[in-house]
C-alpha cells in the first residue's frame, strides 16, 4: 500500500526528516510514537502533500504510484486521507457543504457519479450518528467554534465519508475525554478492513487499545529508530524516550 524509502525533508531549509523508511501493507495498522518535535506531523504533511516541505532525498510510493508527483487533492482522490493534529477553521463554509463538495470531488476524481443532495444527506446522517455529531454541528462553519474534541470527531467523520484506503491519523486522540476517545476509537476501528490501511500517530497507548496496531514505530529526530509489536507502545509509555533521544544525540 505505502512504501517510504530513505525520506529526507526540509522545512525552511531545516532538515526535519532524515531518512525515514516505512512500509505499510494492505489492511495493516501501524502506529508511530515519538517525542515532541521528532517529525511525526512533518511526515504526515509530506505524505499528504502540503506546500513548503521540500523532499531532498528518497521516495514515497502509494499503491504503485509516485505520490510525490501529485497535488494534495490528487492524493486524496487516490485514496489518501490525513486527520489533522490541528484541524483548520474555515469561516463562512458550512460543514455539510464542505463534506459534500469534498466527497463529490473525490468521486469525480475516481470516475464515479456525484451524489445528489438527498442521497448525500442520508449517507452523512448514517455516519454522524455513530460519532455523536449533531445536525447543528453540520450546519456550522467548518471547525469554527468547535471544541477540541468536536474538531477531532469532525476529522473522523470526514474520514468515514471519504472512505480512504490509507488514513494517517495525527494525534486524533489528543484533547478527547474518555467517552469521546472510545467513540473515536470505535469509529476508526469500524473503518478497518482488508483494503484499508492506517498510520496512527499518538502519544498514548490508550488509543491503541481500540485500534490495535500490527506494528509500532518510534520516530526520533527524523528517523524511525525502533519498530516492534503492540507491546512496544506499553513499554514506551512506561520508560519514555530518553533512550532514543540520548542515543541519537
Amino acid at each position: 500500500m505505502l512504501e517510504i524509502k530513505n525520506l529526507h525533508a526540509t522545512v525552511d531549509g531545516k532538515e526535519i526528516l532524515r531518512g525515514v523508511d516505512l512500509t505499510i501493507g494492505d489492511g495493516e495498522v501501524h502506529a508511530i510514537m515519538g517525542p515532541n518535535g521528532s517529525g511525526k506531523s512533518t511526515l504526515s504533511y509530506v505524505i499528504a502533500g502540503r506546500d513548503g516541505y521540500a523532499v531532498t532525498e528518497g521516495s514515497i510510493t502509494f499503491n504503485g504510484k509516485n505520490l510525490l508527483e501529485m497535488e494534495a487533492d490528487e492524493r486524496a482522490g487516490e485514496g489518501l486521507f490525513l486527520a489533522f493534529q490541528y484541524p483548520v477553521e474555515i469561516p463562512g463554509v458550512s460543514t455539510m457543504n464542505f463534506l459534500k463538495t469534498s466527497l463529490n470531488a473525490v468521486r469525480k476524481y475516481r470516475g464515479e457519479s456525484e451524489l445528489d443532495a438527498m442521497d448525500f444527506l442520508k449517507f452523512v446522517r448514517a455516519q454522524t450518528k455513530a460519532l455523536g455529531i449533531t445536525e447543528d454541528m453540520l450546519k456550522r462553519a467548518v471547525n469554527v467554534g468547535f471544541s477540541g474534541g468536536e474538531k477531532k470527531r469532525n476529522e473522523v467523520l470526514q474520514m468515514a465519508v471519504l472512505r480512504p484506503t490509507l488514513a494517517v491519523l495525527d494525534e486524533t486522540d489528543s484533547g478527547l475525554d474518555v467517552d469521546a476517545l472510545r467513540i473515536v476509537g470505535e469509529g476508526v476501528t469500524s473503518l478497518r478492513g482488508p483494503d484499508r490501511s492506517m498510520l496512527v500517530i499518538t502519544h498514548y497507548q490508550r488509543l491503541l487499545d481500540y485500534i490495535v496496531p500490527d506494528v509500532v514505530h518510534v520516530l526520533a529526530q527524523g528517523r524511525i529508530v525502533r519498530s516492534g509489536d503492540k507491546s512496544l507502545a506499553l513499554e514506551l509509555e512506561e520508560k519514555g524516550y530518553a533512550e532514543f533521544t540520548s542515543a541519537a544525540a
Binding site: R50, G92, S102, A105, Y109
Partner: peptide, 27 residues
Amino acid sequence: EAMFYLRSRGIPEVEARGILVEGFLDE
C-alpha cells in the same frame, strides 16, 4: 492552511479558492 485543508480533502485548487472566497463574503 485552509487551502491545504480543502485540497487534502480532494478539492482541486480553483474550486478550493472559490470556496474560501465565498466563505469570506458570507459574512
